[in-house]
Amino acid sequence: MASLIACPHCGPRPKEEFTVRGDAGITRPEPDAGADAWHAYVYLRDNPRGRHREHWHHTSGCRRWLIVERDTVTHAIYSAVDAAATGETA
């Protein structure tokens, strides 16, 4: 994993300050979306090779949830934006 993550609020900070949650590409279903949609949301995750968008929490920093796009092979970080600023909901 990358050594540094460029937080949009705090600048480049060591990865130890962050906590990863997982895939940011999944969207919380509507309450009545049905068992399959909820099963997929709660339990099913892709494990992609290459670019991957994830939720990261700047736990020991500004405490904002970020969407970090990183490469699971090269560990390169392409972007880190505030989750609330993306206009999409998880």
């Binding site: 906590t19 949650r21 940011a24 919380r28 939720h55 929490h57 736990t59 405490r63 904002r64 949830w65 505030d82 989750a83 609330a84 909901t89 998880a90």
Partner: peptide, 13 residues
């Protein structure tokens, strides 16, 4: 605290 922040920032901004 982390959970509340996730809900507020990522689920229901």
């Amino acid at each position: 605290m982390n959970h509340l922040e996730f809900c507020a920032q990522a689920l229901w901004p």
